[in-house]
């Protein structure tokens, strides 16, 4: 077998410059999960159907299981781990998902939140139909999507209210 080279890549992940040497066949999701140990981004299928691996590049949602790590060389990637503010306060979407019980097992949640962030960047006040259409690339097997729609709607209203939402200090708040 011919010798295959690795490629050096440098990119910004959650605001931090990161580098690595990867086989060209390494998918971005593997680079994030295995090399950078950002395991919040998940793999739920092998055919680009489920969206559990969704991250954003320059704010645009993409499926990191269907992008080579070398293709992301130089990119500005955001994963679920980068959604909280520097002071640890939750992003409005995280707040919305928590408040409205938009998750159960939590496995699809990071991808769902990242896909929703793409929507809210384009549409500050989406209708339920627009929300449902925007998360068509993300499968949730637990919630029936009912509360995910409520969660994203809640997040949109929090954003419109002009803030990333305050974080409750207690679950009973």
């Amino acid at each position: 077998m011919a010798e295959h080279m690795t490629e050096h890549i440098a990119l910004v992940v959650n605001g931090t410059p990161r580098e690595g040497d990867v086989e060209p066949r390494r998918m971005l999701v593997q680079f994030l999960r295995e090399d950078l140990e950002l395991t919040g981004t998940h793999v739920g299928c092998d055919t680009s159907q489920c969206g559990a691996c969704t991250v954003t590049i320059d704010g645009m949602a993409i499926k990191s299981c269907t992008m080579l790590a070398v293709q992301a060389d130089g990119a500005n990637v955001k994963t679920i781990e980068g959604m909280q503010a520097a002071d640890g306060s939750l992003h409005a979407l995280q707040e919305g998902f928590w408040a409205k019980h938009g998750l159960q097992c939590g496995f699809c949640t990071p991808g769902m939140i990242m896909a929703a962030s793409d929507l809210l960047a384009r549409n500050a006040d989406p209708t339920d139909d627009e929300i449902r259409h925007a998360i068509e690339g993300n499968i949730c097997r637990c919630t029936g999507y009912h509360n995910i729609v409520l969660a994203i709607r809640e997040a949109a209203s929090l954003v419109r209210a002009g803030a990333s939402a305050p974080t409750p200090t207690s679950i009973t708040a």
Partner: peptide, 26 residues
Amino acid sequence: VIAGGMSLLPLMKLRLANPERLVDIG
């Protein structure tokens, strides 16, 4: 040739397409 890879990469992941070299025009 690979650009977005939306068609090619799923085939490669399933090893239904096995190119020796990818040229990224992206």
